[in-house]
Design a protein around this nucleic acid. Structure first.
Length: 460
RNA sequence: GUGGCCAUAGUUCAGUUGGUUAGAAUAUCGGUUUGUGGUACCGAGGGUCGUGGGUUCGAGCCCCAUUGGCCACCCCA
């Protein structure tokens, strides 16, 4: 008995209709990347586990899909007792014996690995883009998949904040092209460090920022509770209050922060960077997206050190981010290439798709691929069509012929209809005698007899 | 890793306080119509009711377990 087929949790098949729409997104992003001088690379689906582990924090390590070693991994253990002993040390240690490869979790870390490995072939600053799937062993839910595409653009080997400004422009360009209204939130890790420093909890920066990050979700009381539960001192939480609750324009926020962080060198540096970014972006007249300095924006990935970005759709029901990124000063350092700062952004193509689908933002014109179908009555007619078909294709028109000769006309017509092919050429004995083609417009239903040359002219 | 909801045809769903042979719509295929699709009419195939146990004379329906899906938390694109 045939088993019912299925695919793993959190993965999806894509139909032709969906792929056409997905490619529309990929094309838009790719074009923007190329406009700004980024070049494509690809890296393998799998990396050495050691390359990925420890780069995404405690939580991230758990979400990495590990690949089981091939062969007999029990051979490592000479005696059963050794196996038991290793098991006792916990799954983290045990994993090393049975898995040494993993599916990539994002594109940034493999990129850092790539840069280190190919450092002598690369001209810096290196601007690369990469559009590939990544995998996370997360529990799927709305807008969250276990296999999804990231579209990354990163500059590595340049400290200039111009890069940050350009990345913001690219975000704006992409979402303008796709017609999605977005809000771009910007913050800086140095400001967050400064805050942690100012309230005397410098080493707790991660816990503090993660809690603050949830402000609009769980409210000020929720944030304070979480801080308390994480063992942040009462005084520190107290000092944090004016900051969390502060409302105002970007300029007001900057002035406020300058006062608050006046004793923190790193904090002031962060403010300076943010100020530059906002000033420069505002000099570029045609940024259409809403841009906001969001002091509560933290972003989980540990490797960020400077600017951090997050983009959310300003319409629709998806509340999670559709694009994110930031600057990382020493991601390549772990692989042996220190002092190489990079900054990048990552578009979540699948979430962008969900937003566009919900808001009906896909142009209807993109669905049609074949423009013309040849409908015939038999093998003789089919053979007659083949040279015509070649000529039409050579003229750059997407065309096909119904492959099974002698199929009922009704069926051939339904095929065209289902495939949304806008034009059909019908070839029977009449047409073969007269040398004219019967062209049917499938939308209006109108029919006319025309020559091959006129047909090409018309459909071009 | 924690919690909530759900599981019946390819798909979306009906299915009475537990009662004979589990239905509809849609999709697919065929026919009405051997030179005309999208509309209409007729017909066909398609189900171990997620899986395993239990209660009962009898379970799609009740109970337990398990698997899978969706959603929320955590975290993230």
């Amino acid at each position: 008995m045939a088993q019912k087929p299925s695919i793993p949790k959190g993965t999806r098949d894509f139909s032709p209709e969906e792929m056409v729409k997905r490619n529309y997104i990929f094309d838009a992003i790719r074009q923007v990347f190329q406009h700004y001088g980024y070049l494509p690379i690809e890296t393998p689906a799998m990396e050495n586990l050691s390359t990925l582990m420890g780069k995404y924090g405690e939580e991230g390590d758990k979400l990495i899909f590990k690949i089981l070693n091939s062969g007999n991994y029990f051979s490592e253990f000479k005696k059963d007792e050794e196996l038991l002993e290793t098991k006792k040390q916990g799954e983290k240690v045990f994993t090393k014996y049975i898995s040494e490869k993993a599916l990539k979790y994002d594109l940034t870390v493999p990129f850092a690995r790539y840069v280190v490995q190919h450092q002598n072939e690369i001209t810096f600053p290196f601007k690369r883009y990469q559009i590939q799937p990544v995998w996370r062993a997360d529990r799927p839910q709305k807008g969250r998949y276990r296999e999804f595409y990231q579209c990354d653009a990163d500059v590595i080997g340049s400290n200039s904040l111009i890069n940050e400004v350009e990345l913001i422009q690219m975000i704006d360009d992409v979402f303008n092209r796709l017609n999605i209204p977005v809000i771009i939130k910007i913050n800086n890790r140095k400001i967050l460090s400064g805050i942690a420093e100012a309230i005397g909890e410098a080493h707790r920066i991660i816990d503090i920022t993660v809690a603050i990050d949830k402000l609009d979700k769980i409210g000020i009381e929720g944030v304070n509770n979480e801080l308390r539960e994480n063992g942040i001192s009462k005084e520190a939480i107290e000092q944090l209050q004016p900051l969390i609750t502060f409302q105002g324009t970007t300029i007001e926020k900057i002035i406020f922060l300058k006062q608050l962080l006046s004793d923190s060198a790193i904090g002031l540096k962060g403010i300076e960077e943010v100020e530059y970014i906002f000033r420069t972006v505002s000099m570029i007249a045609n940024i259409e997206s809403e841009i906001e300095l969001d002091i509560s924006l933290a972003r989980g990935l540990n490797y960020y050190t400077g600017a951090i970005f997050e983009v959310k759709a300003n319409a629709g029901t998806l509340s999670s981010s559709i694009c994110g990124g930031g600057r990382y000063d020493d991601l390549t350092g772990i692989f042996g290439l220190p002092n190489m700062s990079g900054v990048g952004i990552s578009f979540g193509a699948d979430r962008i798709y969900d937003v566009m689908n919900e808001l009906n933002l896909f142009p209807t014109a993109i669905t049609a691929s074949t423009k013309l179908l040849f409908v015939t009555f038999g093998e003789t007619e089919q053979n007659y069509c083949l040279p015509l078909l070649k000529k039409i294709r050579k003229a750059g028109i997407n065309a096909e012929i119904y492959p099974d000769a002698g199929t009922k006309m009704k069926k051939q017509m339904s095929y065209a209809d289902n495939k949304k092919i806008p034009f059909v050429v019908i070839i029977g004995s009449d047409e073969m005698q007269s040398g004219m083609l019967t062209l049917k417009n499938m939308v209006s239903g109108e029919q006319e007899k025309i020559t091959i040359d006129y047909l090409i002219e018309k459909l071009k």
